[in-house]
Computed example of a mutant assay.
Amino acid sequence: MKYVDEFRNGDTASALARLIRAEVKPGRNYRLMEFCGGHTHAIFRFGVNDLMPENVRFIHGPGCPVCVLPAGRIESAIRLAEEERVILCTYADLMRVPAGSRDSLHKAKARGADIRMIYSATDVLAIAQANPERQVVFFAIGFETTTPPTAAVLKIAKAMQLNNFTVFCNHVQTPPAMMHILSAGEAGIDGILGPSHVSAIIGSRAYADCCDKYRVPLVIAGFEPVDVIQSVLMLVRQINAGEAEVENQYTRAVSQTGNQKAQALMQEVFEQRPMFEWRGLGSLPESAVQIRSEYAAFDAEKRFNMKEIATADIKGCICPAVLRGVNNPDECKLFGTACTPEDPKGACMVSSEGACAAYYSYGRYRETTGTT
């Protein structure tokens, strides 16, 4: 199958891995952060780690929108569903993420709140049309990949004058989070595997300031194993040469300028949010978007006068440190015992892109079997 089989070819992967082993310098370490959770799962699922020399190490980043959403925002959505009696619609991954007091959207639904899982942002418009007597709120989350669909449904709702539809906007932006992690310097990052789908929207040039300011190379990588291994080779070569450029391995989907129609749609509907809290990273300036005043009638935060809620993560959970690249999931005392995909204590174990879920599904037996 084109764009699948050739990017999962074992011979190609082995050949690229041999080049990496030949080009790494024995006296130095290469700490590479895969920003996107999709890369984390590809690395573990396809055994990319096993092909790397010992001095090439993957550092897991915050690239999962479900994981970086703070517990307080989820608690706000639960209160909206239970106290305002709205129909709350959101994506499935968000349903079991722990909120305050070990609550979750899934538990609130079990208590009787009308919370519905949707597959597409347009599903919410259909629900609003089918329930004209009810207020319907779309609990929207995601990086730049899912922001354009939310902008599209807001524009459609305005054109339809759909007065019982609003959006609780939680869309965040990749480059500011990346710059924050590099500025903190906690993880000691030498290079970054840039996200794939996000980059298809915002383009490769969106990371230029980040590379220039912090002198760290970035390679936009596809999600298949050969993509990841080739991108590692590109990073190793930049690091060895002392370069800090944005390179694009994922040329079959990403351009320098990105999807300009999607960018124009986002610009029309959204504006920069002055401050937004990220799980693990704290409150970051200009790292998220909010709904413009022209669409204020469809902003759930305004219609329901929603207030910020500060909620602590579950005691013992190190998700915040995992999202900053400071700790690995298996360094958490809860990992694989109190915290499992069936009974998650942290967001990183819930999401299909979470680092803890990747470790649990593919990597938790690696050390006991003697692999590295």
Rank of each mutant, 00 (worst) to 15 (best):
E75I: 01
L323I: 08
F276D: 02
T40R: 00
H171Y: 09
F139G: 00
R237M: 10
E133T: 09
P217H: 05
V4T: 11
T368W: 12
N131E: 14
A126R: 12
L265R: 09
L80V: 05
A241D: 10
L334D: 09
K333A: 13
M275R: 15
R215A: 13
R85K: 15
S104D: 02
C319G: 04
G112L: 05
S293Q: 13
C36P: 07
A264N: 07
A358D: 04
G100M: 07
G47Y: 02
E342D: 13
S14M: 10
M160S: 03
I181V: 10
P175N: 00
Y295C: 06
V236F: 00
H41T: 11
D212N: 11
T311P: 00
I115S: 01
Y119R: 01
A297R: 09
R73W: 03
A200P: 00
A152S: 06
E308S: 11
C210N: 11
Y214C: 06
T311G: 01
K213W: 13
S231A: 15
A338M: 10
S204D: 05
S14T: 07
V68N: 08
G72C: 09
W278L: 03
G37L: 05
P62H: 10
C332D: 11
T122Q: 11
Y295L: 04
A244I: 07
S183C: 11
I229M: 14
I118F: 13
D343C: 10
I59F: 08
T146A: 14
M95Y: 13
E331V: 01
M33C: 07
D50K: 00
L80Q: 05
L235S: 03
C67M: 01
V228H: 03
V172I: 15
M349H: 08
K307W: 05
H180G: 04
A13T: 02
H39T: 04
E84C: 05
C332P: 11
L94K: 02
